[in-house]
């Protein structure tokens, strides 16, 4: 068995012009060039994309699930950030 593991890459694909890239999955490849070629075969067999990003998984920093509370709670008491917080009288019309 080969111990020469190909690194893991995360693949992001832009579905259509004007959209942002979205994470679609991961794959193994020896280098970035092959990661993009493999991503073409694995993730765009039905014209699902117009652009591919490949990033080595080990290069991604992620928040940890335990942060769920503390990381986001500053937003909890700021409902006024949403436009629906404010009542605009009907007479004023669309705003």
């Amino acid at each position: 068995m080969s111990t020469n593991d190909w690194p893991l890459w995360e693949i992001f694909i832009r579905g259509a012009h004007g959209l942002s890239h979205r994470h679609v999955g991961s794959l193994h490849a020896p280098d970035a060039e092959m990661a993009i070629k493999n991503a073409r075969d694995v993730y765009t067999r039905r014209k699902e994309g117009v652009s591919i990003w490949a990033i080595e998984s080990s290069a991604i920093a992620a928040s940890s699930p335990e942060d769920k509370g503390s990381l986001y709670d500053p937003a909890d008491d700021k409902v006024y950030r949403h436009p629906t917080f404010f009542d605009i009288p009907d007479e004023v019309g669309a705003m």
Partner: peptide
């Protein structure tokens, strides 16, 4: 040919899901 290629793709989507649980691709293949 397209169908068989899809099956390879399906295998890869699933291996990649299994890998997120800590099983490496080479271990599974082995």
């Amino acid at each position: 040919l397209a169908k068989v290629q899809d099956e390879a793709g399906h295998g890869l989507y699933l291996y990649c899901a299994a890998e997120t649980l800590g099983a490496t691709r080479d271990e599974l293949t082995e």
